[in-house]
Simulated scan of single mutants.
Amino acid sequence: MSSPPAWPIGFQTILVRAVLYVLFIGAITQGAYFEALYLPSVRFSELGFTEFTQTLVLATCCAMLIYIRYVLKVWPTVMLLLLAFVAASLVREQDHFLDNYVAENTWKVLVALIILPSLFWVVKQRQRFLAEFTHYSNTFAFGLFTAGVLTTYIFSRLYGRQEFWQAVLEDSYSGTFKSVAEEVVELLGYSLILIATLELLLLARRIYKARQTTI
């Protein structure tokens, strides 16, 4: 008989979370629907609900990862890499504003300043990273985070291709279809990353409390 997990979680707790996650996904989908109905001047633009929610979701993920790394101090090397990835994604989402109000390609410079030092540190601490990743890779949070990344950076790009929608809609094609498809799927991917980060935070809190009881 296999041993129980080191940081157990009750079935009722899982059920409550599942319901909340379903409601959250439903809410952002409904928000995109309301954006299409009531915000025709900014819908699916940089000032619309979908883009703003993407920014809010990523900023929230960054805050949670900072808390996990610097307050709970759980898997700090892995958390640094995740934080760098999410922070870079957050900066990338501001490319329109940075390019228009700061300078062209500003977002690329900022992303490089985030990613390169973080990668350097992770490589330098690779033994510690691998040890921490062994634990993290066996969690629900890791699987969900991976699903979010694949949805955002692979599926949304392929699904939102102009050629795809031109083939589907033929003479009825409009660039709006492409934008809606890509942005809404991207929001779904970021939402999965948000849920994964929340699950990671809750797990980190259980690990932190377990450590406190053994001191």
Rank of each mutant, 00 (worst) to 15 (best):
F164M: 15
L158E: 11
Q166K: 10
E199I: 13
R161L: 12
G175T: 03
E183P: 01
L158H: 09
L169G: 04
V184L: 14
G160W: 01
W165T: 02
Y190T: 03
L201Y: 10
F155Q: 03
S174W: 12
R206M: 00
L188Y: 13
R161C: 12
E170R: 12
I193V: 09
E182I: 06
Q166A: 04
F155G: 07
A167W: 14
L187T: 00
D171S: 12
S174E: 12
I154K: 09
L169D: 01
Q166V: 02
L187K: 10
Y159E: 11
F164N: 09
A196G: 01
V184Q: 14
E163H: 06
A167V: 06
I154H: 09
I195S: 02
R161F: 13
F155V: 15
V168G: 01
L158K: 07
V185L: 07
L200W: 12
G175A: 04
I207A: 13
G175C: 09
L187A: 08
R157I: 11
K178P: 06
Q162R: 14
S156E: 02
E183I: 01
E182Q: 09
L198I: 13
A181D: 00
L200V: 09
L198M: 12
L169T: 02
R157F: 08
S172A: 13
R157A: 11
R161G: 13
K209N: 13
R157M: 10
S179D: 15
A210W: 07
L169K: 06
A167R: 10
Q162G: 09
Y173S: 02
V180K: 03
K178Y: 05
L194P: 00
F177A: 04
S191G: 10
L192S: 03
S179K: 15
F164L: 14
Y159H: 14
E163D: 14
L203A: 08
L187Q: 10
R205P: 10
K209A: 15
I154G: 10
Y190C: 03
S174M: 10
L202M: 05
D171W: 08
A204R: 05
R161S: 15
E182M: 06
D171E: 15
D171K: 11
A167P: 11
A204W: 07
V185H: 02
R206C: 01
T197Q: 00
Y153V: 04
R161Q: 13
I193C: 05
T176E: 15
L203Q: 08
L188Q: 09
L203D: 07
Y190R: 05
L169V: 00
V180S: 05
F177Q: 04
G160R: 00
E182G: 06
L158I: 10
I193E: 05
E170G: 07
S156C: 03
L198A: 09
V185I: 10
L187M: 08
L198K: 07
I207P: 05
G189R: 04
G189W: 03
K178V: 12
V168N: 01
E199M: 09
L169M: 15
V168F: 06
A210M: 10
L188M: 13
F155K: 06
D171N: 12
I195V: 15
R157H: 11
